[in-house]
Design a protein around this nucleic acid. Structure first.
Length: 710
RNA sequence: GAAUCCGUAGUUCAGUUGGUAGAACGUUGCAUUCACAUUGCAAAGGUCACAGGUUCGAGUCCUGUCGGAUUCACCA
């Protein structure tokens, strides 16, 4: 046995050993308690990063439950991550001087498909390096034919249940990415802008009304001016008409309580087509929607003389013309939040667009009910309230994306509309498989919606689509899954949606427990990001210290749900612990073969007392272990085991029993060996490689901790 | 603006029904032909952010203040 534990000598070998034994292969064992975790699918578009290393929580649970004899399944799959992946791929294209517009839809799709296939394999190898006991044989991908089929069925069900609708609404559109985004995909940034005052002449008389705006170019699409009904300054204007400068449109001055009298001039120009608030206002007051900015980021023909200009050029031109006409008032610097595309960082343009939406209210109501009833438990507990709040405030979900890389929406538009049913449905119908004719009017003229689903629409169904495509036996046995473990940052985007869709489609919660982990931070407590240059590459850590050290470092000194600080000091500490553990094992093993010699009775007496004390203390440790493992207090467990094995078992008991052990006292030998093996069994979920290596030293090369029950 | 979390040793953090402040790392001293120097033994180091309150007793419960973080909403 080496005097130091050398991860490189064992980790690779043990990974293959576990795989060859099929320990983690998902097999239904009806007589055992099912314990299933679905891996939050990593995006198949890049290398492993520290966020993926956080899957260690799941591996800990899986290994723990496997050891205590449950029927475990940790189901593996990767995500297509629609926009993310297409964005990454387009960056590759750009390097070659190409763009997505150079390719046909199906060619581009195939290219991305190949790119992803390569990454999927890469990802698998890297996850194995971390020692993750996933079922790598049965892997899932959202674009697998059988998964798409279920996703289509879900959409059809929602459509038939009247929970989807097609509507023209303001969407968050990125003119650079060429697609709309959901509200969750918009980043906001505090920016200094300018607040301009613009005078609008009234139609009758010589008065003017002055509005304040940060977006003068949208004035071309104004369809009203609104003031607060309580505002004395403007009471006399309500109901009158003003003239939109430059374009000469007559618009009405209306009253609405939503206007803040203290802000700007207290009078607001309303452009329903280009601002979320104005859109709402427009709906309330039945205003016209005039779109002056197009999806290409240029002014539309509605913008008259300004048509074809880019947004910023149009702004300059509008300001200049206003100035010339003496209609431009004061300019003020103004801090405001600007929505930006979370991918390309370009300013998000609110634009009216016809899209598919899901009515959330009825879905959310079921989910809230389930959470309140405790059908889903949430750790840490404080997120329960937050989850309910999230579900309560969920607005209708825009699921259409104008990108190629995704699951194409199985909605068809009949262009002929020969029957009344067809006309009532505005020609839209949903079919799981491409039909030969319009089921509403039998017309042969129809086409499929070009748009693809929002990634979260398919990943929101992940727990049941992955199990259903694994066979009904698997689904019946393992669904609902035991635990959904993920970061609290995607509680809204993912967890809430899985709950809603899972409940609606299967009638059951998709998981019984939600366990949320925190973020990994650096020494200074900052988030890790490429731009800050403080990113820790898990693969480098594995090369330097081994996977066990990385895993233990992510777990040591953490509290459930709080952020993890990963520092070199901690990793060195964990490496030292690994070394200590190795040497405890080595010392006990070395003395195992010492032949028993006569030991004086007086010493025997004290030893017996010590042995009894050790046994008693170990029983306490085991009891606390079970309690805390079942309570998801993994940081606590590792801390306790660290303290016990090192500072009690080694520093106190082995030191006290050292002489007897060397003399070959068989009772001491046996007790220490038994206690040590129990320690490494408990440590195994945290430090799988080293504990397995030690186990094999004692039990033989073909043995495994995973095969025995405690 | 609202909600949630946090403020404890030089540093990172534990402290689960309220009962004498803990660990790791770092620092300092000592030990060494010993399974392990990636070691062992020991020491120093804290007005538990601040101010009130409840209590026999508060790091822990309540209120407020200050400081930090996150999330949500709004910003014409």
């Amino acid at each position: 046995m080496e005097s130091k534990y050398t991860p490189a000598l064992f980790e690779q070998k043990l990974s293959s050993f576990w795989e060859s034994k099929g320990f983690f292969k998902g097999v239904v064992e009806k007589d055992k308690k099912p314990f299933c975790i679905i891996l939050p699918p990593p995006n198949a578009n890049a290398d492993l990063h520290l966020g993926h290393a956080m899957y260690v929580y799941e591996d800990i649970m899986i290994r723990y439950h496997k050891i205590i004899g449950d029927n475990t399944l940790w189901l593996y799959g990767t995500d297509h991550a629609g926009i993310e992946t297409q964005f990454v791929f387009e960056k590759h294209l750009k390097k070659e001087g190409k763009s997505r517009f150079d390719f046909e839809r199906n060619v581009l799709f195939q290219m991305i498909f190949d790119f992803v296939a390569q990454n999927k394999n890469n990802m698998k190898i890297q996850l194995q390096k971390l020692g993750f006991g996933l079922d790598y044989e049965n892997t899932k991908f959202p674009m697998d034919e059988n998964i798409v089929k279920i996703v289509y069925a879900t959409f059809k069900k929602l459509f038939d249940d009247g929970l989807t609708y097609r509507a023209k609404k303001l969407v968050n559109y990125c003119v650079n990415c060429g697609t709309s985004f959901s509200d969750l995909e918009v980043d906001y940034e505090e920016r200094e802008g300018t607040l301009w005052s613009i005078h609008y002449p009234l139609r009758d008389g010589n008065d003017t009304i002055t509005v304040a705006t940060t977006r003068p170019e949208t004035l071309l699409g104004d369809t009203a001016i609104v003031v607060n009904p309580k505002d004395r300054r403007y009471k006399k204007f309500i109901g009158k008409h003003a003239i939109v400068p430059l374009i000469g449109r007559e618009i009405q001055i209306i009253a609405d309580e939503s206007v803040d009298m203290k802000f700007g001039t207290g009078a607001v120009k309303v452009t329903p087509s280009h601002d979320h608030n104005d859109w709402e206002l427009g709906q309330r007051h039945s205003l016209l929607n005039i779109q002056v900015i197009g999806t290409d980021g240029k002014m539309t023909k509605e913008a008259g003389a300004y048509a074809g200009l880019s947004i910023s050029k149009a702004r300059e031109a509008v300001l200049l013309s206003l100035k010339e006409k003496g209609l431009l008032g004061e300019e003020k610097k103004h801090m405001h939040r600007v929505g930006r595309c979370y991918r390309c960082k370009r300013v998000i343009e609110p634009l009216p667009k016809e899209q598919w939406f899901i009515s959330i209210k009825p879905l959310a109501a079921k989910a809230i009910d389930a959470v309140k009833k405790g059908e889903v438990e949430i750790y840490p507990k404080r997120f329960k309230k937050e989850l309910i709040r999230i579900l309560d405030n969920f607005i209708d979900w825009n699921i259409s994306r104008q990108i190629v890389w995704g699951i194409q929406i199985p909605a068809y538009k009949c262009t002929e509309m020969r029957s009344n049913t067809c006309r009532e449905a505005k020609g839209w119908f949903v079919a799981p498989e491409k039909p030969s004719k319009c089921p509403l009017c039998q017309s042969l003229l129809f086409h499929q919606d070009e748009d693809t689903f929002d990634t979260w629409f398919s990943s929101g169904q992940w727990p049941f689509v992955t199990l259903q495509t694994s066979g009904s036996e698997m689904y019946n046995h393992f669904y609902p899954t035991a635990v959904m473990e993920t970061g609290h940052d995607i509680l809204r985007a993912w967890v809430a949606r899985m709950l809603m869709l899972g409940l609606h489609v299967t009638g059951k919660v998709p998981f019984k427990t939600i366990f949320l982990h925190g973020l990994v931070r650096d020494k200074k407590g900052q988030k890790m990001s490429k731009s800050k240059g403080n990113v820790v590459n898990p693969l480098e850590v594995i090369n330097t210290y081994g996977a066990d050290v990385l895993r233990a470092s992510l777990m040591f000194e953490t509290k459930e749900g709080s952020d993890v600080v990963l520092t070199d000091e901690k990793m060195i500490g964990m490496r030292n612990f690994g070394n200590k553990l190795w040497n405890i094992g080595r010392f006990i093993f070395m003395n195992r073969s010492v032949i028993s010699k006569d030991v004086s009775t007086s010493v025997e007496m004290t030893n017996n007392k010590t042995l009894e004390k050790l046994k008693k203390e170990l029983e306490d440790v085991k009891a606390a272990y079970k309690k805390n493992m079942d309570g998801y207090l993994f940081g606590q467990v590792l801390g306790d085991l660290h303290a016990f094995t090192w500072h009690r078992f080694a520093d106190v008991y082995i030191e006290e029993l050292k002489e007897k052990l060397k003399l070959g006292d068989s009772e001491v030998q046996m007790t220490l060996e038994k206690a040590f093996l129990e320690c490494i069994v408990m440590l195994h979920p945290f430090i799988p490689f080293e504990t397995e290596a030690l186990w094999q030293v004692f039990k033989g090369e073909n043995e495994s901790i995973l095969k025995q029950n405690v």
